[in-house]
C-alpha cells in the first residue's frame, strides 16, 4: 500500500538536492551584496541549455558539461552584476529598486533565451546524457541522476563551507557580509571579492540547472517555474544562513513531492496544486517568523542590517508601497 513511498522519498531527496545547490548561490548573493536576486533562477535555465548544447558534442561527459555550465553562468552573472546591479548599488538605491532591477534582468535573460531557443528550434530540449539505474531497492531505481544530484549537493555544501572558513577570499567574503564599510576600511578589495561571489553564485545556479535538466525537459521557462521554490528555500533559511539553506532545500523538496503525493493518495488533492505548498511555506514563514527557521547569528544580524538600511535617512527614488 505504500509502494509509492520509497520512490517519492528518493525524488524528494533529488529535488531537495537541486534546490540546495541552486539556493546556496542565492544565499551567498543575499548575504554578501544584500540583493534578493530574482534573476537567480534564470541561471538554472542557462545551465540546462548549456547542458543541452554541450552534451550534443560530448555526450555523457558530465565533467565537461558541468564545467561548461559553471563557466557560462559565471560569465553571465559577472556581466549582469557589472551592467545592471553595480551602477544601481553605487548609487545606494533602496532594496525595492534593486528588486525591480532584478526582475528586469530576469525578464531580459528569459526572453533572450526564448528568442535564441526559438531560432535554433530548442524550445523544449533534452540533454544527451544516458540515465541508467545503479541499484534497485523496494522496486525503486536509484538512477545515476539522483545519485549525482545528492552527491553534488553534499560536495558543494562542503566545498563552500571550506571556502568560506579556510581561504582568505572566503574570509573577506564573510567580512563583507557582516559589515561592508568596515571590510572596505580594513583594506579588502571589495569589488574583487564581490566579483568572485558572483562567479560562485551564478556557477552554482548553472550546475544545479544542468543536473535538473538531465531529469526534466529543458524549456526557457524552467528557471521561472522554480523561482518561487528557490525563494521559499532561502526564506525558510532566514535569507543568509547556509545550514538553513540545506535544511530548507530538503524541506521544500519533501513538501513538493512526498507531502504532495501523500495528499494526493489519501485526500485526492490534484497534483496540479503541487507548487502551492512552497508558496504556503513562504507566506506562513514571512508572517510568523521572518527570520527563518535556522537559528543563526549571521541571519539575524543581516536582518537587522536590512532594517537599519531601510530606515536610515532619506533616499531618492523610493517608490510607493502598494
Amino acid at each position: 500500500m505504500l509502494e509509492w513511498l520509497p520512490g517519492s522519498i528518493l525524488l524528494s531527496l533529488f529535488q531537495g538536492s537541486i534546490y540546495v545547490v541552486v539556493s546556496l548561490g542565492l544565499t551567498l548573493t543575499l548575504a554578501v551584496v544584500k540583493l534578493p536576486n530574482f534573476a537567480h533562477a534564470e541561471f538554472l535555465t542557462i545551465g540546462g541549455y548549456v547542458g543541452v548544447v554541450v552534451s550534443a558534442v560530448y555526450p555523457d561527459n558530465l565533467l565537461v558539461i558541468g564545467a561548461a555550465a559553471f563557466l557560462v553562468c559565471s560569465a553571465i552573472g559577472l556581466a549582469i552584476h557589472h551592467i545592471a546591479f553595480k551602477p544601481l548599488m553605487d548609487r545606494k538605491v533602496s532594496i525595492y529598486i534593486l528588486v525591480l532591477a532584478s526582475f528586469a534582468v530576469a525578464q531580459f535573460i528569459r526572453y533572450s533565451v526564448f528568442s535564441w531557443a526559438s531560432v535554433v528550434g530548442l524550445l523544449s530540449a533534452t540533454q544527451n546524457i544516458k540515465v541508467y539505474s545503479l541499484v534497485t531497492l523496494y522496486n525503486t531505481e536509484l538512477t545515476n541522476v539522483y545519485a549525482l544530484a545528492i552527491v553534488l549537493a553534499i560536495l558543494m555544501s562542503v566545498l563552500l563551507e571550506l571556502f568560506l572558513k579556510m581561504t582568505r577570499m572566503g574570509k573577506s567574503m564573510r567580512a563583507i557580509a557582516s559589515n561592508f564599510d568596515l571590510a572596505r576600511v580594513s583594506g579588502i578589495n571589495v569589488s574583487r571579492v564581490v566579483d568572485v561571489m558572483w562567479i560562485i553564485a551564478a556557477g552554482l545556479g548553472g550546475i544545479g540547472g544542468m543536473v535538473f535538466g538531465i531529469y526534466t525537459t529543458v524549456t526557457p521557462a524552467l528557471g521561472f517555474s522554480t523561482l518561487l521554490d528557490i525563494f521559499a528555500v532561502v526564506i525558510i533559511a532566514g535569507l543568509t544562513s547556509f545550514t538553513g539553506t540545506i535544511i530548507g532545500g530538503y524541506i521544500v523538496g519533501f513538501s513538493q513531492t512526498t507531502v504532495m503525493e501523500f495528499l494526493n493518495y489519501y485526500f485526492g488533492v490534484s497534483l496540479g496544486y503541487q507548487p502551492l505548498l512552497p508558496f504556503a511555506l513562504i507566506i506562513v514563514i514571512l508572517l510568523l517568523k521572518p527570520t527563518g527557521l535556522a537559528p543563526s547569528s549571521t541571519g539575524l544580524s543581516t536582518i537587522r542590517k536590512f532594517a537599519r538600511r531601510n530606515s536610515s535617512g532619506p533616499r531618492e527614488g523610493e517608490p510607493p508601497k502598494e
Binding site: 534578493p36 533602496s94 518561487l228 496540479g272 496544486y273 507548487p275 502551492l276 513562504i282 508572517l287 508601497k321
Partner: peptide, 29 residues
C-alpha cells in the same frame, strides 16, 4: 492581510508574486 504585515519592503513584492502565481495555478487546475 499578509502583504501589509511583512517586515521588509521586498517581502511585499514576494507575497504579491506568490499571490499571482497561486491564482494562476488554482484557476488552471
Amino acid at each position: 492581510y499578509p502583504a501589509l504585515r511583512v517586515k521588509e519592503e521586498w517581502f511585499l513584492s514576494m507575497i504579491l508574486l506568490v499571490g499571482g502565481e497561486t491564482f494562476r495555478i488554482v484557476v488552471t487546475n
